[in-house]
């Protein structure tokens, strides 16, 4: 199995189609086609356009944002283990969201609390890693990891204090869950903006692999590039986390799946990571909705359970 650009691009419509075709209610092919074209049964139309299409797009946007953020962070921090959780942003959002659940604030307040937590974490990372000589990837990493574990402790505290009736909702949020995602349009706009911005820097990111001094000598405005790319990765992570909670593994694994298949140039890697991350999460969410229907599994569990063996398989084959 080798992941080719054509395969990745073809997977986008295929995954969205599957996400719309399958769900807890079984629609036949004819009914599905009618509903897609806006004809026939009102309930079927509502299921397809009102429920499944936004959910499929939410999954796609969320996965694409996470994979894009992961690819950017891996090159910026020169660390193959970097993923969106490393910025502390997911941890901050989780602490905010759980506090909102604990205090019994509604969905809008929950999103606001998650956004506040994420912004606080992002602000701290930025404040502590901008030194006199520009960005310091080492400090980004250290601040992010420290914040993440601090927020982890807060999350643990809230889980232990919460009444048992709230714990399941909290766990779903922590594991990553797209069922309360709602309208994906904001996330899709953020995804498009981040993808275009990151893509515009792809040649400079290729040169950055040579090290900061060498990249400067080749004409890259390194500090500006790092600010743009970190900003992009942070924004993408915040948008993804607000949509689907802390969905793990997509941001770490998707860029590596592409690199293991020989795709390294950022002009190809970044857009393909967006496409592959989006498709894989849309597919994983379809599975999460249907495997134990009418119950839903948290999609974050599925991404890890699919992602780990796939990565290990590729690692084993491409020695």
């Amino acid at each position: 199995m080798k992941i080719t650009p054509v395969l990745v691009v073809a997977l986008v419509p295929a995954s969205l189609a599957l996400a719309i075709a399958f769900g807890s209610v079984d629609l036949g092919p004819a009914q599905l086609a009618d509903a897609l074209l806006g004809r026939g049964d009102v309930i079927a139309r509502e299921i397809v356009w009102g429920v499944r299409a936004p959910r499929a797009l939410a999954g796609f946007a969320c996965g694409g944002l996470l994979a894009l953020a992961g690819a950017l962070l891996q090159v910026l921090l020169r660390n193959p283990l970097a993923d969106p959780t490393i910025l502390g942003v997911s941890g901050g959002a989780a602490a905010g969201a759980l506090a909102a659940i604990l205090l019994g604030i509604g969905a809008a307040g929950l999103n606001f609390a998650a956004l506040a937590g994420a912004s606080a974490a992002a602000g701290a990372v930025f404040a502590f890693s901008l030194g006199r000589s520009g960005w310091n990837p080492y400090r980004v990493l250290l601040t992010g990891v420290a914040l993440a574990s601090g927020f982890g402790a807060l999350v643990g505290l809230m889980l232990s204090l919460a009444p048992s009736s709230q714990v399941q909702g909290m766990l779903f949020w922590l594991l990553g869950d797209l069922s309360p995602a709602g309208d994906p349009s904001v996330a899709l706009v953020v995804f498009a903006a981040c993808a275009v911005l990151a893509f515009s820097q792809s040649a400079a990111l290729d040169v950055l692999i040579l090290g900061e001094d060498k990249a400067r000598s080749l004409g890259v405005a390194v500090t500006r590039l790092q600010a743009i790319a970190f900003g992009c990765a942070t924004l993408a992570t915040v948008a993804a986390v607000l949509l689907g909670g802390s969905i793990g593994f997509v941001g770490l694994v998707v860029p590596h799946l592409l690199r293991l298949s020989g795709i390294h140039r950022h002009g190809a890697l970044l857009p393909l990571a967006g496409c592959l991350g989006g498709s894989l999460l849309a597919l994983a969410d379809t599975l999460a909705r249907t495997v134990a229907a009418p119950a839903e599994l948290p999609v974050g569990v599925l991404t890890a359970m699919i992602g780990v063996p796939v990565l290990l398989f590729l690692l084993g084959r491409l020695r």
Binding site: I209, L210, G211, D213, K214, R216, S217, L218, G219, V220, A221, R259, H264, R265
Partner: peptide, 21 residues
Amino acid sequence: RGELARRIAVLLQDEETDFWG
């Protein structure tokens, strides 16, 4: 930077030793 890079090239003593391609 972009303008300097077309005028001055520098070989560093310790350049990155790893490259994917």
